[in-house]
């Protein structure tokens, strides 16, 4: 099987600091991948490289766009998103004073087929498209259980619901690959269990490839099929949960060397 996303020797330097160093990964369609590592290992930087927030210092990011290879390195974030790559943020970045429904609608932008003039002059295309957008956005909110709160301001949602709204918003992009940056951070065990279900459900329903950063090891070990481990910007291990659990480099990275 052709990998959907292939990362080759990716490196990112900030001044003298090498945040991501020579990372190579192969991700197959439909996989659920975990990306773990101690704090400051470069996990979020890697996400930011893959989603275009940062430009790589060197290396390639190759995306399989329905059989055609595309280089994502250095593209603007909105162009990468247009290929069907969506993400959530570690420090939640919702559109705070917009409603829950509007947050989802914003993310449907690339699939809306009417322009500024049609909007200003209220041409028929405006009405038909807006109706479709409304229906689709409501459907996604039902999926994550936020339909009842669709008219509330995003900032008024409790923490766990804000995380779910971020997922709904990412799904509105109709992604092929979904990056989740610490989706369970700050959740209680019950919410984490619900989240686990949600992640499984959306993957099957929308045929997603999911890559997630997470510190909650029980969650990672439970749902991820394959795990990459980063430490000091370098990839130190990859394999299935069982292999990772017993990998000596991983144990060293987390617990330090024995003296």
């Amino acid at each position: 099987m052709e990998p959907i996303l292939q990362v080759k020797n990716l490196t990112k330097n900030f001044g003298g600091l090498c945040a991501v160093s020579n990372v190579s990964m192969k991700i197959n369609p439909g996989e659920l991948i975990g990306l773990i590592g101690p704090n400051g290992a470069g996990k979020t930087t890697l996400f930011n490289l893959l989603t275009g927030v940062y430009e790589p210092s060197s290396g390639l990011i190759e995306f399989d766009n329905d059989g055609k290879k595309v280089q994502l390195g250095g593209l603007k974030p909105y162009k990468i998103t247009a290929y069907g790559i969506a993400r959530t943020f570690q420090n939640i970045r919702l559109f705070k004073t917009m409603t829950v429904l509007e947050n989802v609608k914003v993310a449907m932008h690339k699939n809306i087929r009417y322009g500024t003039l049609a909007a200003i002059f209220r041409l028929p295309s405006y009405y038909s498209e807006e109706q479709w957008v409304e229906e689709k956005a409501c459907e996604l909110l039902k999926e994550v259980g936020l339909y009842g709160k669709r008219n509330e301001q995003a900032t008024n949602l409790p923490y766990g619901e804000q995380r779910r709204l971020e997922i709904a918003r990412a799904l509105a992009i109709q992604p092929k690959i979904l990056f989740l940056d610490e989706p369970a951070a700050g959740m209680n065990p019950q919410e984490t269990a619900q989240l686990t279900d949600l992640i499984h459900r959306i993957r099957d329903k929308y045929n997603l490839t999911i890559i997630l950063i997470e510190h909650d090891m029980s969650l990672v070990m439970k749902i991820c099929e394959r795990i990459y481990v980063l430490d000091y910007g370098k990839l130190i291990a990859d394999g299935n949960p069982e292999e990772i659990r017993n990998n000596e480099f991983v144990i060293k990275a987390y617990l330090g060397e024995e003296i």
């Binding site: 989603t51 927030v53 603007k76 974030p77 909105y78 998103t81 247009a82 969506a86 993400r87 943020f89 970045r93 919702l94 559109f95 705070k96 004073t97 917009m98 509007e102 609608k105 914003v106 993310a107 449907m108 932008h109 690339k110 809306i112 009417y114 322009g115 500024t116 909007a119 200003i120 002059f121 209220r122 405006y126 498209e129 807006e130 957008v133 918003r169 509105a172 992009i173």
Partner: peptide, 25 residues
């Protein structure tokens, strides 16, 4: 009319959070 449309929502999202807006395509 502009404000209550997809382009208008795009503008509002830029006001709210430009980085997230770009990540939403």
């Amino acid at each position: 009319n502009f404000t209550r449309s997809a382009p208008g929502r795009a503008c509002l999202s830029i006001r709210e959070d430009e980085i997230a807006s770009e990540a939403m395509g």
